[in-house]
């Protein structure tokens, strides 16, 4: 029982992390049909900055991480993707794949192949006992952080005029422009939000590992991208739910698969993904229709 609850809390926390990462991908995809593989390198950049600046205090490190995430995200849009507006989603995916490779090599050049380490928020690396049940404090904190960010984001999207513009553009970009919503504004907004989400993911991930290397964001973005696609990447909440599902499933498999099979947990998840794509190509949580590609 105790073990079940522990693994559930861990799985919800893993799902929350990947949900945020997938949401970042879905926000951008909804507007410009880009499934940004290089989102992982935005996470890596924020993670490096957290490692390097943590000693200055969290109130310095976290704003800097957010700033770096937002700036790198906007730079990608201005430098690369804004020049490829006519490209198909598949071509955009290849380009973001190339950008991801390129940035990893840049990180290698600047920070070396070895991981950089720092104890980030060590006070979160404890167990917490609630009513005789021990859970990881970090898992609980991750769930809370994700929940706070989600509530804030939903409020922003539904209440503020900027959030509404983003929703309108995600629903139908062409019509949104005919109504008078500036394309560059909503695209920039979606990239900026995805940068903020990347910083959040970077924070919970660096607390967990305390170490960052050039490929830090790759496994995260692979699972998040896959989650976004199976959840329904062109629906913001579909991407979120899909990312959550993949994170949850991966974590549960890690907890409950017999040890000689747990090495293959990702393989099971990927197989599951292929099966989902075959039966629900436009996403698990999207009713009918196909993704506009």
């Amino acid at each position: 029982m105790n073990q079940l609850i522990q693994s559930l809390v861990d799985a919800i926390s893993a799902g929350a992390t990947l949900g945020l990462a997938a949401l970042a991908i879905g926000l951008v995809f909804g507007v410009i049909r880009l499934a940004n593989f290089a989102q992982g390198e935005i996470i890596t950049a924020s993670a490096y900055s957290i490692i390097f600046t943590w000693q200055l205090g969290w109130y310095v490190a976290i704003p800097i991480a957010i700033l770096i995430g937002v700036i790198l995200s906007l730079l990608m849009e201005v430098g690369v993707f804004s020049r490829m507006r006519m490209a198909t989603p598949a071509t955009l995916l290849v380009a973001s794949f190339g950008l991801s490779f390129l940035l990893q090599r840049v990180y290698e050049l600047f920070f070396g192949n070895n991981v950089r380490t720092a104890p980030v928020a060590p006070e979160l690396a404890q167990s917490l006992e609630i009513g005789g049940i021990r859970v990881q404090l970090l898992s609980v904190a991750t769930i809370i952080i994700a929940a706070v960010i989600l509530v804030a984001l939903v409020q922003f999207l539904n209440r503020s005029i900027w959030g509404l513009q983003l929703q309108a553009a995600a629903a139908d970009f062409r019509i949104a422009r005919l109504v008078g919503i500036p394309a560059s504004r909503v695209i920039g907004l979606s990239f900026a939000l995805s940068g903020i989400l990347a910083a959040a993911v970077a924070f919970v991930s660096t607390v967990k590992t305390g170490a960052v290397g050039p490929p830090f964001g790759v496994p995260i973005v692979i699972l998040a991208l896959i989650g976004a696609v199976i959840g329904g990447i062109d629906k913001i909440y579909g991407a979120l739910a899909g990312g959550f599902l993949v994170g949850f499933a991966t974590s549960m498999l890690a907890s409950w698969l017999p040890s000689d099979m747990s090495n293959f947990r990702d393989a099971y998840v990927f197989l599951l993904v292929i099966i989902v794509l075959i039966f629900r190509p436009s996403g698990l949580l999207v009713r009918g229709g196909t993704v506009r590609t």
Partner: peptide
Amino acid sequence: FAGLSVKDNLRLGAV
């Protein structure tokens, strides 16, 4: 914008 309220559709028009 089918997913948004009537009020929000009008707000977007004012953009």
